[in-house]
Each structure stands twice: as structure tokens, then as C-alpha cells.
Design a binder for these strands. Structure first.
Length: 642
RNA sequence: GGACCGGUAGCUCAGCUGGAUAGAGCAGCUGCCUUCUAAGCAGCAGGUCAUUGGUUCGAAUCCAAUCCGGUUCACCA
């Protein structure tokens, strides 16, 4: 039981004894005591005044007295300021906690709760290399999986690869037309980048071919359009030229987009891509072969990137294998009367009663849409693992989609429905706005990794502390620091929030960064190397004397690790861990550096007594463990030296 | 227009199950390396917590309205 829990239950018992009132222990509000007051934890007594019928000060005083008398192992003393009851926790309590945990390898780890959870994350398209946005997703997914594991869950990390569809055909077609048989081997270009280059090539050609079509359409020359597209473009252009529409900037821009989109459809290259997609669906041998070859290049590239990032998966799903799923569910839903058919044979669900819209699930021609396959895949995952919870790490632009997905599954009475959880995260923006591929502002993941590692290498060389380190170890260290910096930078912000990614700041290695935390860890290890020879019999040692302020503070912070771990799970937010571990490192650095008249207050090596040395050795060992554990939850390793 | 999310220091973010004088980092300014790692420490300065009203002993935190920004409401994925 944590200190806070102990205080809560002691306070609940006290209130029962004093005022004959039963309050659930968890409802008692406890804060850490502000540094300017004496004590470690503070009970807010305002809520109790209604049954004590006393002033807040008097209530606090009664409660404090009772707690000290009845909990001699926990509460050593108290002071009252207004309705705040500041408690001083027994120094023995901290010393015992320290003795029990300083060498605990599994600190904070909860025993298995037998519950299975799937975390789906990463889920890339195979037409382009990974970019900054994917990094936030990957780091989040990995970290959440670690946090779940530490809280006792059995976790399946899944990756649903979007390996088919029109966007893949675009890369394939452009490669066919322009690559002259180039391969990653022949060009030396990483597979995912090579394929991405042809996607870009496709878009360039598409733009060239689209422009004259738009220009003609705006001059009322519609020879590029046929059938229903012809009808639509005529309407759109007529509207587009109306003065009242021109005046409404937003509407005008929207119309402009629609005209552009419709024009893109008419280009030769887009139509070729569409044909290729049909051929792929029909199982055309040549197309399928090209598809597997190019996807193979991409996977090899992705694997390399995943490996550098230290990210892995237990289960791969491929959309090419799941995109036809979901039709059975739709048929069943139709039979149950949950879904309905429109005159054109398309199948829908009506969610208007739930404040949403009607949603299409099968087109009139019987082909499925995104939602259909997600329904089917949800069932497939559940059939595979029967997990209690299925977490989707997906950007917040799909909030509506997941709301609808869960609702439909509920209406279809699928057993997986209740466990669906959309871990929605905000977009990563650059200081000047969103990344836009058309403006070439997309930050490539591989480039970014290289840059941060290089920055770490430069910094290490500048410090000159590790000139004796073998080259191989240095490279491991640079990677640890560089990748850690990226992960920390992207995880330290609450996932729900949009965040600004400043490339300059991301390679910054001072302040609220992983490097700061890693440095604190390396310092501790350095201390431990020095004192190791005379650090015997630590296991049985429980400090008896009094504790200096920062000794106590550090133990206290370490003790909070458990509840921080629970909090991170509850909030589904690694940022809770990042903030905590930074605070812990900060606290350690103060402990490390405090100096009075040229002498370190908390020196371990030159401690004033052998007892103090043992105590401080235990404290720094515990701190190093907590730092390492916390960072591990973020997917970040910590060095012995740096 | 409907729905959802956000607005806290010059910048990036904590704090939000209501509680003490709203905190970090960066940037700016002062000090501190003969000492267990200065990738550090100590300090200064910086705030109408978007606005207005309400609930309360007490509001950055809860409620309502307004303003600003974002996302979404596709037979795209």
C-alpha cells in the first residue's frame, strides 16, 4: 500500500471514530505539501467540517491529533494552516520503504491480472516512407503497450498494414512508366523511399495532366468529362462563377477543391491507376507480382526503421487480406433489421437517433467501404485473441469514424464492441503549420533519426568525457541519446493535444529532455562505481537516524512511482511518466549538486558517517532503478556513462 | 450549420476528480567547475489562466454564453 493510501485509510478511520461518519477512503483529498510548509502530505479537511461542526482549523487539529496517536508508524507530527492538515510522515517509514525497494528489480510491476489487450498502432501505408506523424503514433503505441504490461496486462501489439488500394497503384504505375527497372539494390535507395519517390512522381504527372482539364472546364469546355461527371462539373462550374459564391471565400475554396478532384479523375494517368486497381482486385498475375515485389521493398525499409526505433509487433495484419471482410456482418445486420437497404441496393445504418448520421456500409454494387472492412477486422481480431480491450492508436481526425465503428458493433451485438477504445492523438504540426506533402514540408522519419543521432554524437564529442570509449559503444550511446530525445520529445505532451514539433528544439539536449534524465542516470552509475567496493551489507541496512530534506524528498518521489504508473494507464498517457521521470531527475540533480562552503551536502563517497553512506547509496540506487524503469516505459534506454 | 477537441509566461508545455502565493523547460539576465560527470546547480525577471456571467467558504479547474483556432460530418482510406 502506498503512503497516500495508508494516509487515506487512517484518515477515514479517524473520521469514523471522531464524527461517526463513513467516508470512502478514496474520496479523501490528499496533496503533497507545498515546500514552504513543514510536512510531506496534506489532508484537506474542509469537506469534514459539515459533520465535525467545528471550524476547519479545529477539525484539522482534532484529526491531526488522532492520526498521530493511532498511527505511530506512519504519522510523526502535524501542523495546521487554515483547513490544511500538513502531516509529517515518520522517518522510519521512509527508511523502511527504502530498504525494501532499493534493490527491487521489478519495481512497480503489477502481478498479472489475466486480461488481454490488443494495441494496434503504426499501421502505415506502403506507398510512402514513414514521417513525423507516424513517429508519434509508433512511440505512443509502443509506450502504451509497455504501460499496460507494467500494470499487469497481457498485451498483443498489432500492426494493420495498408498494403493495397489506389495509392499503392499510383506508386506501382509510376514505377512501371518511369523507373526503367530500378530497384533498391540497383540504386542504393532504401526501399520505402524508392517507392515513395515514384508516388511523388505520380502526383507530379497527375498535377500536370489535371491543370489543362481544370482550365478548360472553367472556360466551359467540358470535353474531358462524360456521363455523371459531366453533369456534375457543369453544375460546379456554374456555381463557381456566381458572384455570391465568389464572395464566400470558404464555399468558393470548397467548390474549387471539388472541381479539382473531379478533374483529377479524368486524367489519363489516374484512369490507368484505376485500371491497375481493378486488375489487382481481379488477381491479374503481372500486377500482383509487381505489387508483391514493391511491397517487399517497402517492408524491408520499414523493418530497418522499426529496428532503429526499437519498435516491434506481435501480430501483423494486412489489408489485402482483410479488405473483403465485414460483408458477413453486414448481411447479418440486415437480417437482424439493424441495417437497411436503399433502392439502389446500397446498405446503410441509421445513426440519427444517436446524434450521428446515416452511414453507408456496402455500395450498390456490393463492394465494401472503409467502415465495412474495419467492422470485419474488429471481428477477426476478436476471433484471434478474445481480448477484453482493443486499443486503436489513430490520429484524432478519425474520431468520428471510431465513434461510429463502436456504435455499429454495439448495435450488431458483436462481443468485441465494448472493448473498443480509440486512443486518439493530435496532429504533429511544424512551427509554421501542418506538414503538407504538396509543399514539401513533410519531415521524413529516417532523416530525423539521422539528425538527432548526429546531434548527440557532436554533443558527446564536445564534452570530451568519453574519449576513451570504444567506437562501437559510442555509436550505441549516440543512438540511445538521439532516439531517446525524439521519443521523449513526442511523448512528453499529452497525446490528446495537438503539438508543435520544432526541429531545432527536438535535437536540443538540455532542459525537459530525455538527455537530462539519461544524464542523471549516468551520474548515479558513476557514483555507484566509486562506492561499490565498500557498499556491503546494504540489503539488511535500514537507516535509523534522521533524514536531510533532499534525502527524504528523493525517497518520497520514488515512492510515487507506483501511483504514477497507474495514473498513466488511467489517462492512457505516457506524458504522465515523462513528467514524473523528469521531476525525479531534477530532484536528484539538486541532491547531487547542493554544496555548502565548498562541500557537497549529500556526498555519497565522502558521507559524514558510514551509515549516511549506506543510506545515500540506497537512495541513489533506488533512483537509478526508477529512472530506468520509467524511461523503459517510454521505450527509452539509459546509459551507464555519458 | 451540427458534433467533437483545444485556448495557461515571448515560445513549447504541466497543473483541470474544485483548495494554500498558478508551475517546468526554452529564450533573456546574475552567480557557481583544484570537489561523486557543468549534457549540471543556485538565483532574477516574466501571468487580466481567451472573454463575460453563474455555482461555492474557495474556480485555471465545474456550469452557461460569447470570441478565436483545429478536426470532422464522402459510395476516400
Amino acid at each position: 500500500m502506498s503512503v497516500v493510501q495508508s494516509i487515506r485509510s487512517a484518515a477515514a478511520a479517524a473520521i469514523k471514530a471522531l464524527y461517526e461518519q463513513t467516508i470512502p477512503a478514496k474520496d479523501i483529498a490528499i496533496n503533497t505539501t507545498k515546500p514552504e510548509f513543514e510536512g510531506e502530505y496534506t489532508v484537506l479537511v474542509f469537506p469534514f467540517t459539515k459533520f465535525s461542526r467545528l471550524k476547519p482549523e479545529e477539525t484539522a487539529d482534532q484529526l491531526g491529533k488522532y492520526l498521530v496517536e493511532h498511527n505511530p508508524d506512519l504519522v510523526a507530527g502535524y501542523n495546521v494552516i487554515k483547513g490544511f492538515l500538513n502531516l509529517q510522515i515518520c522517518e522510519q517509514y521512509w527508511a523502511q520503504y527504502l530498504q525494501q525497494h532499493f534493490n527491487n528489480r521489478n519495481i512497480g510491476k503489477k502481478p498479472s491480472n489475466g486480461k488481454k489487450v490488443m494495441v494496434e498502432y503504426s499501421s502505415p501505408n506502403t506507398n510512402k516512407p514513414l514521417h513525423l506523424g507516424h513517429l508519434r503514433n509508433n512511440f505512443l503505441g509502443y509506450s502504451i503497450a509497455e504501460i499496460l504490461k507494467a500494470n499487469g496486462y497481457d498485451v498483443i501489439k498489432a500492426n494493420l498494414v495498408n498494403d493495397r488500394g489506389i495509392h499503392i497503384c499510383k506508386s506501382m504505375l509510376a514505377w512501371q512508366l518511369f523507373a526503367h527497372g530500378d530497384t533498391p539494390e540497383s540504386t542504393g535507395i532504401k526501399g520505402d523511399h524508392l517507392v515513395g519517390d515514384y508516388y511523388v512522381k505520380f502526383e507530379t504527372i497527375l498535377k500536370e495532366q489535371t491543370e489543362p482539364i481544370i482550365a478548360r472546364a472553367l472556360e466551359n469546355d467540358f470535353k474531358d468529362f462524360q456521363g455523371t461527371d459531366l453533369e456534375r462539373i457543369e453544375k460546379l462550374v456554374t456555381l463557381f462563377h456566381k458572384p455570391e459564391i465568389k464572395a464566400d471565400e470558404e464555399k468558393h475554396a470548397k467548390l474549387n477543391d471539388e472541381i479539382k478532384e473531379l478533374s483529377r479523375k479524368q486524367t489519363e494517368i489516374m484512369q490507368q491507376a484505376q485500371i491497375m486497381l481493378q486488375q489487382w482486385e481481379a488477381g491479374n498475375h503481372e500486377v500482383r507480382t509487381l505489387w508483391s515485389t514493391m511491397n517487399g521493398w517497402v517492408y524491408k525499409g520499414f523493418d530497418e526503421t522499426y529496428k532503429r526505433l526499437g519498435i516491434d509487433f506481435d501480430k501483423m495484419y494486412y489489408e489485402s487480406e482483410t479488405y473483403l471482410l465485414g460483408k458477413d456482418l453486414v448481411e447479418e445486420g440486415l437480417a437482424k433489421g439493424v441495417l437497411f437497404k436503399k433502392p439502389d441496393n446500397s446498405i446503410w445504418i441509421d445513426l440519427t437517433a444517436d446524434g450521428l448520421d446515416e452511414k453507408l456500409l456496402l455500395r450498390g454494387d456490393g463492394t465494401s467501404v472503409y467502415m465495412t472492412q474495419d467492422l470485419g477486422t474488429a471481428r477477426l481480431k476478436y476471433d484471434d485473441y478474445q481480448m477484453e480491450q482493443s486499443i486503436y492508436v489513430v490520429a484524432d481526425e478519425q474520431n468520428y469514424h471510431f465513434k461510429v465503428l463502436q456504435l455499429i458493433l454495439k448495435k450488431l451485438q458483436e462481443p468485441c464492441a465494448d472493448g473498443i477504445f480509440h486512443l486518439s492523438y493530435g496532429m504533429v504540426e511544424l512551427p509554421h503549420g501542418r506538414m503538407k506533402s504538396r509543399e514539401g514540408t513533410v519531415v521524413d522519419a529516417d532523416d530525423l533519426i539521422d539528425e538527432t543521432i548526429t546531434a548527440a554524437a557532436e554533443q558527446t564529442a564536445n564534452s570530451g568525457k568519453l574519449d576513451d570509449m570504444p567506437e562501437e559503444d559510442l555509436q550505441t550511446l549516440h543512438k540511445m541519446l538521439g532516439i531517446g530525445a525524439m521519443k521523449f520529445f513526442l511523448l512528453r505532451v499529452d497525446p490528446k493535444k495537438r503539438m508543435v514539433f520544432d526541429p531545432k528544439e527536438s535535437i536540443e539536449l538540455h532542459g525537459f529532455t530525455s538527455v537530462f534524465v539519461q544524464y542523471a542516470h549516468a551520474r548515479i552509475k558513476s557514483i555507484l562505481r566509486e562506492v561499490a567496493p565498500n557498499a556491503d551489507k546494504l540489503e539488511g541496512y535500514c537507516h535509523k537516524g534522521s533524514l536531510l530534506p533532499l534525502e527524504k524528498e528523493l525517497i518520497l518521489l520514488n515512492e510515487q512511482y507506483d501511483s504514477v504508473l497507474e495514473e498513466a494507464l488511467k489517462e492512457m498517457s505516457p506524458s504522465v511518466i515523462a513528467n514524473y521521470v523528469f521531476q525525479l531527475a531534477q530532484q536528484f540533480n539538486s541532491f547531487y549538486a547542493e554544496k555548502v562552503e565548498g562541500k557537497y551536502t549529500y556526498s555519497v563517497q565522502d558521507a559524514e558517517t558510514p551509515e549516511k553512506q549506506k543510506l545515500r547509496t540506497q537512495i541513489v540506487m533506488l533512483t537509478a532503478r526508477t529512472i530506468a524503469k520509467s524511461m523503459k516505459l517510454l521505450g527509452i534506454d539509459v546509459p551507464e556513462r555519458m
